[in-house]
Write a protein that binds this DNA or RNA. Sequence first.
DNA 1: TATTGTTATACTCTATAACTATA
DNA 2: TATAGTTATAGAGTATAACAATA
Lengths: 174, 174
Amino acid sequence: MNKTDSPEPEGLMLPVPGVDYGPLDGLLGYALRRAQNALYLDFYRATAAWDVSPQRFAALVLIARNPGLRQGLLGQAMGLHRSGALRLTDWLTAQGWAERRDRPGDARAWGLHLTPAGKRRLTPLEAAVAAHDAALVTALGEQGLTLKAGLERLAWVATAQSTAPDNEPRRQKT
Amino acid sequence: MNKTDSPEPEGLMLPVPGVDYGPLDGLLGYALRRAQNALYLDFYRATAAWDVSPQRFAALVLIARNPGLRQGLLGQAMGLHRSGALRLTDWLTAQGWAERRDRPGDARAWGLHLTPAGKRRLTPLEAAVAAHDAALVTALGEQGLTLKAGLERLAWVATAQSTAPDNEPRRQKT
DNA sequence: TATTGTTATACTCTATAACTATA
DNA sequence: TATAGTTATAGAGTATAACAATA
């Protein structure tokens, strides 16, 4: 049951004329899903030349800004299981974006680094993503300024509800 | 050696201390992804008794409000391919939520309907989802009022960008 | 004993393509 | 020809469980 992401490649979620959406139209969660769906498709359009999903883009940025990052820590930052971080890293290395290097001090762990080619390719990709994002914020005008703050707060609030003591069987803290 | 229990809550996209997120923290799209991740997990917590994903919940509402809905139209409303709508419908019927009935006027298509049991179960499920959503909006206070409007606008704007001809930026009414 | 990463496996979601029946 | 639904298959994405090497 642990599906934390919305399904990634999707078609457009347009409101269909003549269909009654009932309570869905009133739900914050449904509005969020619609927005994410549209943004996802737009991200793909804006970065088609690189063939990198939003998740993989995030991984590349994290490795670039944290050279030597452990595989497991990368997964933790992205909400992935260890095995998921492995698959993700496998893909990044197979595509020549990143590489595993030995990590001084702990022979169990890898240190992740971008390859020279990965660094070169990431620069224009980051610029394309930033431009794509900025275009949306610009189109939103004043709303754009408050929307991001609202989303960050929403993430915090939803997490707080999920992890409140009464809501879920408590897990041990490590 | 191996632990049968995982002590860490997995799936949460929490900011990891000591990790530099670089430009990700500044992106509207990344804030959206974090919020959606948190909301998804919270939805599961709030509706655990029904074992229905957000997508399946949306399908149930659409069928309830549009009795006799065609399978393909359901998929269109949800951004799914026909084959995806088929799998979704298969699940709903297998679980006893919905059923396919012959559709008068077109022998090719099914009309989808909730079963009596499905109707009975949907009522409290809708209430639980509404309560879950309302709790979030309440916790957000004033921001909650504007956030939903901002998300709806964002979905519109991103869709417009995606479907704009060529790379020409789409003019947008503010 | 706990961790880091790996291997193997399975399940979900989604897509494409070819097919049948009907329009 | 076009549409509605189905079947078969493939590919991400993520999960669990068992394992080896290391701490």
